[in-house]
Structures are given as structure tokens and as C-alpha cells.
């Protein structure tokens, strides 16, 4: 009997506590910038695709939900011919972002991806690619790489000397 009355009292008391329930979706929760949500592909400061199709994200993915095919443009710049993420399999672990050597693939604070049809959770490159640089600014892989992919000539990088003239006789 006493325990019943005590329970009633406790429930009654809670009516005056501050409410923890958030009125989602009218009221959006705060998500920190490093929150691991929907995956995007970003662009470098020059507005070109950052992804160089190195396949490291696909290799790191524990559920193997990333699939892509590398190809090259006329300058020899590598980019993905297609880039597909099957979000119905994705576990938002962020390993792909960790593995990415060019900051191309990034997880952003957006989780509102629910679909009635599972097929709609298959995202292609055009759904993934955004027009900005995402969380990491100022990095362009081809400026620091050794290859000439139309971004800088051989030896044009910050820490590169001019190409060697193999026919010079100087020591």
C-alpha cells in the first residue's frame, strides 16, 4: 500500500520537472560538426572533384557498401567514373573518411535519410557530390602529389625542384 502511494507521488512530482522530449522534427537537435551521418563527396578549392578513385574507402568499409570505378580525364587526372554507396548497408562508422587520403569523402551531421523504398538508399555520385569543400578547407591532393594531372606541372609543387635535365653534365 505504501509503495503504491509512493509511486503515485513520484509520478505526480514528475509533472513539474523540465521536459527532456524534443519536438522532432519541428525542433532539430544540435549535432556537432564531426557527427557521423550521411556521406558526401567534396570538391577541392578549385572546384574540382577531390576524389581520386584510390579505392581506399571501399577497402576500409566493413560492410563493403562502397563501390566505384576509377577513370582518367585527358590530363591524366584520376576520378571516379561512378561512385556508389548503398546506404541501406552503411553503418556510419566513418572508416571511409579516415581512410580517404584526399579529404574527398566526409561524413556530415545529417541523418534524415529514411525512405519507404530501400532502392532509394542507393546513392550514386551525383547524389553524393556537393559543391563545397566540406569540413576540411584548402587541400588539393594534386598540388602535393608527384603526378602531373593538369593541376601543376612536374616540379611545380611547393616542395619540388625543377625536373632534372638528364643530358646535363654537371656533377
Amino acid at each position: 500500500m505504501i509503495s503504491h502511494l509512493r509511486s503515485l507521488w513520484l509520478v505526480f512530482k514528475h509533472m513539474f520537472h523540465k521536459r527532456e522530449t524534443v519536438q522532432y522534427p519541428e525542433e532539430k537537435p544540435y549535432l556537432p560538426p564531426r557527427w557521423r551521418g550521411r556521406i558526401v563527396l567534396t570538391r577541392d578549392p578549385d572546384g574540382m572533384e577531390r576524389c581520386v578513385a584510390c579505392y581506399l574507402c571501399a577497402a576500409a568499409c566493413p560492410v563493403d557498401c562502397i563501390s566505384l570505378q576509377a577513370t582518367e580525364d585527358e590530363n591524366g587526372r584520376r576520378y571516379p567514373e561512378f561512385f556508389r554507396i548503398n546506404f541501406s548497408r552503411c553503418i556510419f562508422c566513418g572508416y571511409c573518411e579516415d581512410a580517404c587520403p584526399t579529404y574527398a569523402i566526409q561524413l556530415i551531421p545529417d541523418f534524415e535519410m529514411a525512405e519507404y523504398d530501400r532502392q532509394n538508399l542507393v546513392y550514386e555520385k551525383e547524389h553524393l557530390l556537393i559543391s563545397g569543400q566540406g569540413k576540411y578547407h584548402g587541400y588539393n591532393f594534386y598540388r602535393v602529389a608527384g603526378v602531373d594531372a593538369g593541376v601543376k606541372p612536374k616540379g611545380g609543387g611547393e616542395k619540388e625542384s625543377e625536373p632534372v635535365d638528364v643530358r646535363k653534365l654537371l656533377p
Partner: peptide, 16 residues
């Protein structure tokens, strides 16, 4: 054993 993309390579045809 590190083969990738199993669950995405055919997902554009059918997600199953």
C-alpha cells in the same frame, strides 16, 4: 579477403 564493394556493386540494379 579484402575484396570490396560486394554490397554496392550491383545495388544500382537491385538493392537486394
Amino acid at each position: 579477403h579484402r575484396y570490396s564493394g560486394r554490397t554496392a556493386m550491383l545495388a544500382h540494379i537491385n538493392v537486394s
